[in-house]
Every structure is written in structure tokens, then in C-alpha cells.
């Protein structure tokens, strides 16, 4: 049964160490002052990788039915719809339609 995957203790420890290492990286990159838009991109990218690791291995998505993964992806897509379309308004309040 796909839902009953048993991870080895060694593997779980490995995942945790990877997460702690990425935590160190995300703090460390703030010391080297990456220029404006890219610092956010790097911080988010690391956070996304960390979450993906947690979801895939701690939450067993790697071995789980695909539908549960689909649920997670759906929630992210709809969050992006919420923020994406809202930004169409809030970023363009002052100027009229840019191409006009």
C-alpha cells in the first residue's frame, strides 16, 4: 500500500540535516547583500526548496497517492491566482493601462 511507507531513521535524520543546512544558507546569504529584487528571489527559492523537502519526505508525498500531491499543488496555484490578480490592481493604481 502506497500510504504505509516506512522511512529509515537514517533517512529522516538526513532530511532534517539538509533542512538545517538550508536554514543556515538562507541566513548566510543575507550577510553578502545580494542586490534588491534578487535577495527576495533567493530567500523565497530556498524556502520553497525546504518546504518541498518537508512535503515530499516528512509528509510522505513522495510515496503517497498522486491526488494528495495534486491537492497541495492546487492550493498553491489558487494562492498565486489570488495574489497575481490582486497585484494587477495594486501595482497599477496610479498609471492607467500601461500601454495606453
Amino acid at each position: 500500500m502506497s500510504g504505509h511507507h516506512v522511512s529509515s531513521a537514517k533517512f529522516l535524520w538526513g532530511v532534517a540535516i539538509a533542512l538545517l543546512f538550508l536554514t543556515y544558507v538562507t541566513v548566510a546569504v543575507t550577510w553578502i547583500h545580494i542586490p534588491e529584487p534578487w535577495n527576495v528571489v533567493v530567500a523565497i527559492a530556498i524556502a520553497v526548496v525546504k518546504s518541498a523537502i518537508v512535503a515530499a519526505f516528512f509528509m510522505h508525498l513522495w510515496w503517497d497517492t498522486k491526488f494528495n500531491l495534486l491537492l497541495l499543488i492546487t492550493s498553491i496555484v489558487f494562492f498565486l491566482i489570488l495574489i497575481g490578480i490582486t497585484l494587477l490592481d495594486t501595482l497599477y493604481r496610479i498609471d492607467p493601462v500601461p500601454s495606453f
Partner: peptide, 17 residues
């Protein structure tokens, strides 16, 4: 958990704006 993500999603959206 999907509902939780969208629940926090509202706050993240406010943050981004």
C-alpha cells in the same frame, strides 16, 4: 491543509501587497 494554506495565503497576499 489546502484550506490552511489558503487561510494563511490571505495574509501572505496582504504582506506582498
Amino acid at each position: 491543509l489546502v484550506t490552511e494554506i489558503l487561510f494563511f495565503g490571505g495574509l501572505f497576499a496582504a504582506y506582498i501587497v
